[in-house]
Computed example of a mutant assay.
Amino acid sequence: MPSTTDQLSAPQRMTGAERREQILAAARRVFAEGGYAASTDEVARAAGVSQPYVVRLFGSKRELFLAAYQQASDQVLATLSAVPAGDDAGKRMGDGYVGLLDDRDLLRLLMHGFIAGADDAVGRVARHTLGEAFRLFRERSGGTDDDARLFVAQGMLINVLLAVDAHRHAGEDTGMDGLVACTLEHLTPLS
């Protein structure tokens, strides 16, 4: 019989749910970097599992991408949904969204999802996420359709600017410098 010390030092087997989350975390990183063109083999290597195991769990690259994209979209909507209605709801929703952008993989995966939106299932998730962000802003802030449209548009612009590292290329293009300054000036300092 193993001693208590042996039991404490023995590696713990992951549950199926934990392994699935490990693979989704790796998929998020890999798809954020390479987009839909990334392979299930790359995801498997990043997760430390075999490629057949990834396929066995998710069925196909499309289903894996969709699961990772759905998870990222759900994270955005959960952040916006967590803000209660009130006078400062719009600002708090904006602050919550900006807080998510510290996770560069999240914003890049979201961008790749919009590009891969020609796939019906991915497009459905993308459309729902944008529509739900619009609806939540209206509902929680009491703002107009135009206010909600600007909220969603501002979020997309911030995503694009951060995805292309615009803030790290000051002086390269005066127009971009102006756009970055007026769009990102109110955000916390970006490195």
Rank of each mutant, 00 (worst) to 15 (best):
S3W: 02
T4G: 02
T5W: 00
L8G: 03
R13N: 11
T15K: 02
G16K: 05
E18F: 00
E18T: 11
E21A: 15
I23A: 04
I23G: 12
L24A: 08
L24E: 08
L24G: 08
A26R: 07
A26S: 15
R29I: 04
F31G: 07
F31H: 11
E33H: 11
G35D: 07
G35T: 10
A37P: 10
A37V: 13
A37R: 12
A38K: 06
S39P: 09
S39V: 01
T40Y: 02
D41W: 00
E42W: 03
E42A: 11
E42C: 06
V43N: 10
R45K: 14
A46H: 01
A47I: 03
V49C: 13
Y53H: 10
R56G: 02
F58P: 03
G59W: 08
E63H: 10
F65H: 06
A67N: 08
Y69S: 07
Q71L: 05
Q75Y: 06
V76D: 08
V76F: 09
L77K: 02
A78D: 15
T79C: 14
T79N: 08
T79W: 00
D87K: 08
A89Y: 06
G90T: 07
K91D: 15
R92Y: 01
R92L: 10
G94V: 04
G94N: 07
G96K: 03
L100G: 13
R104L: 08
L109S: 12
M111N: 15
H112S: 13
G113S: 06
A121Y: 02
R124D: 09
R127I: 00
H128A: 14
H128G: 14
T129Y: 01
L130E: 09
L130K: 08
G131R: 02
E132T: 11
A133W: 00
F134H: 13
L136S: 07
R140C: 09
T144I: 06
D147W: 04
D147S: 08
A148M: 10
A148L: 05
G155N: 06
L157S: 11
V160S: 12
L162R: 01
H167T: 03
R168T: 04
T174C: 10
M176G: 11
D177H: 03
V180N: 09
C182V: 14
C182M: 10
T183Y: 08
H186Q: 10
L190Q: 10
